[in-house]
């Protein structure tokens, strides 16, 4: 799976107290690039130049106040916002997606799952037709990916105007679709079945499913590795 051409790609992963997918993400990226990403503690106010920042899943600051709210105001996120403002690529997964909405880098908010239950299972995603973005460039519209979710607040919410804008601009990256053996298509009640969205320049993506948990047949799916490696390849070119 390792793509030797990716060894020069610089990836940083932010770490907050309560992050618990930082290491899994590091392992996934290292397997794909042969280079260990930098783990950056939340108190760091500076970010070395990188090609991609990943805000990982977990329960930053114990989900206190609102999921991602405290992490979004940490020093490292100011640096991540500067990186994004320069056109840098950012991927937020699960709690990372919540953090990105709390910073305002992505519109909307992730609220409590409509079924009130923590949802932890495989879901099927369909890649949407999007604006140009490194995160979808290597995938084809309609391509399905099996990637697990694990969250209590993954119910994407935004006002109707925002939802229409996301749709019209091609900022919806992934939707939940039927086909997963483990339950209904939409695991959390998300508006328009939204599983992942892009920023208005396509350089920032937030998604609830965990690609780093689907990088080996032993995980039940390698589609997360496909998503990550295609994204990394697009960032190299």
């Amino acid at each position: 799976m390792t793509l030797s051409s990716l060894v020069s790609l610089r990836v940083a992963i932010t770490v907050f107290p309560g992050s618990n997918c930082d290491r899994d993400m590091m392992v996934a990226v290292e397997r794909l690039t042969n280079r260990r990403p930098a783990l950056v503690w939340h108190k760091e106010a500076n970010l070395e130049p990188v090609d991609l920042v990943i805000v990982p899943g977990g329960f930053s600051f114990g989900d206190y106040l609102r999921c991602g709210a405290l992490a979004a105001r940490s020093p490292i996120m100011s640096a991540v916002m500067d990186h994004a403002a320069r056109g840098g690529a950012v991927l937020g997964v699960c709690n990372g997606f919540q953090v990105l909405t709390e910073t305002g880098m992505l519109p909307g908010v992730l609220i409590r799952n409509s079924g009130l239950r923590f949802s932890c299972r495989m879901v099927r995603l369909e890649t949407a037709e999007t604006m140009p973005s490194p995160f979808t460039a290597g995938l084809t519209a309609g391509q399905s990916l099996d990637i697990p979710v694990a969250h209590n607040e993954g119910n994407y919410f935004a006002d109707e105007d925002t939802l229409y804008r996301l749709q019209d601009n091609g900022q919806i990256a992934f939707r939940y679709v039927a086909g997963s053996a483990e339950g209904p298509a939409n695991p959390n009640g998300a508006a328009r079945d939204i599983a992942g969205i892009l920023s208005n320049n396509g350089r920032v993506m937030g998604m609830m499913p965990h690609p780093e948990r689907a990088i080996s047949p032993l995980h039940g799916s390698s589609d997360g590795a496909t998503l990550l490696s295609k994204s990394l390849e697009a960032l190299m070119s």
């Binding site: 106040l65 609102r66 709210a69 405290l70 105001r73 909405t101 709390e102 519109p107 909307g108 908010v109 609220i111 919410f157 935004a158 006002d159």
Partner: peptide, 9 residues
């Protein structure tokens, strides 16, 4: 506005 509430919701 800065932290305590998320004015989106």
């Amino acid at each position: 506005e800065t932290l305590l509430s998320n004015t989106v919701i």
